[in-house]
């Protein structure tokens, strides 16, 4: 399994080497003691193993308890993709105060559980979004904010923004509107909490199950695919 994936990655890299930044290309490096080694930064920096499915705990009581903890402690990745990200900062202000719902902002995908796709998503941003999404640890949830993520919104005929987010990553909660106000976002958080507590927010596993379909869709529009298939 892993060997096959490695081969695919290698073949692809040779094809698309032209997109790589110079510091990420394969190259020969002379070590201080004189031997020449080959360095392939893409292989060194990233793992190319396929993602795994993590089943929920089989004991319902424990899983419900853990789901309660996950629902009450939502850590949001601070990644604003479009104009909707201007609705995120007011959440921490006295007027809306999302902290009282256990919603906190984190700056690194490794520590966050919720990814808010805020508004339109251009192809260039989608590439970064996919990487950040895959770096988040397993129970992870996506909130799609605004009409642009549902059907393209007012950018439905743009050459550069996607129309439907659910073709590229699984979405837990949609918040419609252009733009939704922070109250709508809070309602979305509460809806997400209900889903998590009911054990219905297992979209991270869904992403892994339909991994090839999602990857094909992503690669259809990200034409300079210069990263490994799965990067974590």
């Amino acid at each position: 399994m892993t060997n096959e994936t490695n081969n695919i990655v290698e073949d692809k890299l040779e094809l698309e080497d032209k997109f790589l930044a110079p510091e990420n290309r394969k190259r020969q490096v002379t070590t201080p003691d004189g031997t020449i080694i080959e360095v392939d930064p893409l292989r060194d920096y990233f793992s190319d193993a396929r993602p795994q499915i993590y089943r929920p705990n089989s004991i319902p009581v424990i899983e419900n308890f853990l789901n309660w903890a996950r629902a009450e402690s939502l850590w949001v990745l601070g990644f604003g993709t479009g104009c909707g990200s201007i609705e995120l900062p007011p959440l921490t202000t006295p007027r809306f105060d999302a902290y009282r719902f256990g919603v906190q902002m984190r700056a690194t995908p490794r520590q966050s559980n919720v990814f808010i796709i805020s508004g339109y998503l251009s192809v260039k941003t989608l590439k970064r979004v996919v990487r950040s999404y895959e770096q988040m640890p397993n129970p992870k949830y996506v909130i799609a904010l605004g009409s642009c993520t549902i059907n393209g919104g007012m950018y439905y005929d743009s050459y550069n923004t996607i129309n439907r987010l659910d073709q590229y990553m699984p979405v837990d909660v949609y918040i419609a509107g252009c733009m939704p106000r922070p109250e709508a976002l809070l309602a979305g958080f509460n809806k997400l909490k209900e889903l998590i507590k009911a054990g219905k927010a297992e979209k991270a596993n869904e992403y892994v199950e339909n991994f090839d379909w999602y990857k094909a869709n992503q690669k259809k529009i990200i034409k300079d695919w210069n990263m490994p298939d799965y990067n974590w």
Partner: peptide
């Protein structure tokens, strides 16, 4: 602000271990 619940620290810990 109304602020975070005082027991938020325990929830965060449980979530992180989960």
């Amino acid at each position: 602000r109304y602020g975070i619940p005082v027991y938020q620290g325990w929830i965060d810990l449980i979530k992180n271990y989960a």
